[in-house]
Design a protein around this nucleic acid. Structure first.
Lengths: 199, 199
DNA sequence: CGCGGGTTTGATGATGCTCAAGCCCGGTGG
DNA sequence: CCACCGGGCTTGAGCATCATCAAACCCGCG
């Protein structure tokens, strides 16, 4: 299928952009075997609370979100994903424990799924293992920044930082999602936007 | 020196506890070469804001903290470290950029320092590369939990979680440090402790 | 004894939440 | 083509949580 072809090409392009070692034709054939294309419709779950995660998703096109639901039924957005991001619950995947999070598609999404088992195969590609070290690093840095913001900054300052760091989020997700990601209510976000607009 | 001997032994013991591949005598000799023992006195800096981080520290004995200082001079604790933890600023270390954090010793601390250059050598030990994958995983999971707590829970709930997750912290760090780690003031923490004591 | 770091307590105020109502706008069906 | 519906956004009033500032207290140690 043409559609699936181009999905794998997007992955190849991404890996090449992230890492120095070359990808051989063999490597690429391997990628095509272990990454399975999957289309997710709006609001379709990739992972539900209580399930054990078995796949990592590479997002070719679309938008996804990871969140928990508290006892009052309110959603708390932990993470938002766009093109060229990896969506997963590492804890559940690594330990085989049931996840406490939901992951679903916010927009209609084209993803490539990699099973836990094939992940080992994936890691054996030199370009990939280099890439993963780098990704883990970047990931850790980003999480540290987020913690730093969450415990040290006011709602307004956190919003300003978000605008600078991930301006795309504002185009792709509604404000109540952004608010939850920042750890504030949609009303507070609305007021912050209003007053920071005229100054 | 006997003191230094036992410091390396602590490291060896730690690596063995974390990873399945065996450590050879050669590996151990290598560790002794690349890890340099260093004693830090109370409040001595391991890293200062503006410096580029050049070492990772493995803590054999003692307690350290990582924090930023805002424009009003207030400290915001990002992370606390005890025995068998690794203290570093990954962003500065990885990218070679000046750190925005301070890292210092809270108690008198025995650490083993590994330079950025020797880190590559360290990674080539099979037991170590396996261990690091696992550690990165655990680290990411812990950071996610902290974000989840920070954006979703009240001060009291965050404190309760801390008691369960890191009870040692309460023994080793004063309350104003704990409060800052939780993102609240020492007064608020004091009141929380008071009222949750009698119920 | 007195100093200093840490903790507590109280009064006051800011920040952000809750609940409730109304608005805006694109989509659907009569 | 219009009426209505629903999701998202805004606005307001009242309230809870937590920060700030100030003062007092506690206690180990020189």
């Amino acid at each position: 299928m043409n559609g699936n072809q181009s999905m794998h090409e997007a992955l190849v392009k991404y890996i090449r952009s992230q890492s120095t070692p070359p990808l051989t034709e063999n490597d690429i054939d391997l990628l095509k075997t272990i990454f399975v294309p999957k289309k997710l419709r709006k609001r379709q779950y990739f992972l539900q609370e209580g399930e054990v995660s078995r796949y990592v998703a590479f997002i070719v096109k679309g938008a996804m979100r990871q969140y928990s639901v508290d006892d009052k039924g309110a959603e708390h957005i932990i993470q938002l994903f766009l093109e060229n991001w990896w969506a997963d619950d590492r804890e559940s995947l690594a330990k085989g424990t049931p996840s406490i999070y939901y992951i679903d598609a916010w927009e209609e999404t084209d993803a490539l799924l990699l099973s836990k088992k094939d992940f080992e195969v994936f890691l054996n590609i030199p370009a990939v293992s280099k890439m993963l070290v780098k990704m883990d690093e970047q990931h850790a840095v980003a999480l540290h920044k987020r913690i730093h913001d969450a415990i040290g900054l006011s709602a307004e300052q956190r919003y300003d930082n978000l605008i600078k760091t991930y301006p795309e989020f504002l185009q792709r997700f509604p404000q109540h999602i952004i608010a939850s990601y920042l750890g504030i209510t949609k009303e507070t976000l609305s007021r912050i936007r209003h007053q920071s607009a005229n100054k």
